[in-house]
Computed example of a mutant assay.
Amino acid sequence: MAVEIAANIRRGNIIEYTDGQLYSVLKADSFRPGKGTPTTTIEMRRISDGIKIVNTYKTTDKLEKAFVEDIGYTYLYQDGDNYVFMHPETFEQVHVAGTMLGDNAAFLQENMEVNLQIFNDVPVSATLPARITATISETEPVVKGQTASSSYKPAILDNGVRVMVPPHIDVGTRIIVNTEDNTYLERAKD
């Protein structure tokens, strides 16, 4: 275990909390007021049962960061509630529970490279690529004369995820989506 100050904790880190359990960091926000003590608010999920907690720390408070291996795997297929990944060199297959992936499971695509965080030979967290390409399967029709201003409209991707897109995007358009916050980034160039 490595000791890390709260200000250096990032999304995806694995922390050993005071109760002896491992937690995966979902979000870490630092707040530095002009006057007073700077704080870091950390939202995390207990790996064993998926319970979420949110704690606020002084930025100088020390937390135990678990030593995990970050290994690249290839996503193969879904098997019931589990997802199967394969190590590209050893061809060893690993079954990962859908609860561990959470909402990110919708972004999985065949042969996608995913980094699994391994602790004591057990996957405890997964990091998907920051950007994926998906096709719009459902949206409101394009309104003639409407420009690409700051107004957005709802759209549903081929994987079932709902995103907000500019008005000129139509059904069948391939777009690039940020997997961290489900936001539209740009039209795909292919």
Rank of each mutant, 00 (worst) to 15 (best):
R46M: 04
G80E: 05
Q78M: 09
I14P: 00
V3R: 13
V124Q: 02
D121S: 11
T147M: 13
H87V: 01
V84Y: 00
G72L: 12
D29Y: 06
K35F: 13
E92W: 05
F107L: 06
K189G: 05
Y184S: 07
V54R: 15
Q21G: 08
M1V: 10
V94M: 08
V142R: 15
I51H: 10
Q78W: 03
G102F: 04
K62C: 06
S150M: 14
V177A: 03
E110Q: 14
T99N: 14
Y184F: 15
Q78A: 13
V161Q: 06
N182L: 13
A28W: 03
T59V: 14
T183I: 08
V84E: 02
N115P: 00
Y184L: 06
R162K: 15
L108V: 02
T90K: 07
N82H: 07
R162Q: 14
K62V: 10
E43C: 10
K35C: 10
Q109I: 06
A188M: 06
L101S: 02
T41Q: 11
P167T: 15
S149W: 09
Y73P: 00
N8W: 07
L63A: 03
K189C: 03
K27W: 08
F119T: 02
D121M: 08
M1F: 10
D70S: 15
E92Q: 12
G102E: 04
P166S: 09
T39S: 06
F31V: 09
D29S: 09
F107N: 04
G145D: 04
A105I: 07
T74D: 09
A188S: 15
D19N: 14
I9E: 01
K27F: 08
K27E: 15
T183Y: 08
I9V: 15
L63R: 04
A155P: 01
E69S: 11
N159R: 04
I156Q: 09
D190A: 12
R187K: 15
V177Y: 02
A66N: 05
M44V: 02
N13R: 04
S48Y: 06
I169C: 08
L157N: 01
I5L: 09
T40E: 05
P38T: 03
S150W: 13
A106N: 09
Y83T: 01
Y152D: 10
P88M: 04
T127M: 10
A134G: 08
D121P: 00
H168C: 08
E140P: 04
H95V: 06
R45F: 02
E186F: 11
M164Q: 14
L157T: 00
D49M: 03
E140W: 10
P154R: 09
V84C: 03
S151D: 15
T37L: 10
R162W: 07
E113N: 13
I53M: 11
A130V: 10
I9P: 00
T37I: 13
I71E: 08
V163W: 01
S137E: 15
D29R: 11
R11D: 09
A7Q: 12
